[in-house]
């Protein structure tokens, strides 16, 4: 339980209950726009930030929800979503 994640439905749980879903890259692009470069970008490229990162997680061994959190990749500590993000994501 080194890593804990707060599921919006089930609350704070051990990180092992969850599955990481990648950096938040925004909605799926239109299929016709997906040139090889753009496809590569959306599918595989990461910023690999050593610091605060907005990312997707799924409560795999729980309710199954996908949700976004902020996490510091240097400490794996989860940090609360800033208010403006909450509003935007709502």
């Amino acid at each position: 339980m080194s890593l804990t994640i707060t599921c919006p439905i089930c609350g704070k749980r051990s990180g092992y209950e969850f599955r990481y879903g990648g950096e938040d890259k925004g909605p799926r692009p239109d299929e016709d726009e997906l040139t090889p470069e753009k496809w590569f970008d959306y599918t595989h490229l990461n910023t690999c930030i050593a610091g605060m990162q907005k990312e997707w997680w799924c409560h795999r061994d729980g309710c199954g929800t996908w949700f976004k959190i902020y996490r510091d990749t240097r400490t794996i500590g989860e940090v609360p979503l800033p208010v403006e993000d909450k509003i935007k994501d709502a």
């Binding site: 599955r19 879903g21 909605p27 799926r28 997707w56 799924c58 795999r60 199954g64 929800t65 996908w66």
Partner: peptide, 18 residues
């Protein structure tokens, strides 16, 4: 499977149940 389908529809806000 469930997480796969939900993952790929996560930005869409669709109404379905699995």
């Amino acid at each position: 499977t469930i997480e796969w389908i939900r993952f790929h529809t996560r930005y869409d806000g669709w109404d379905f149940h699995l």
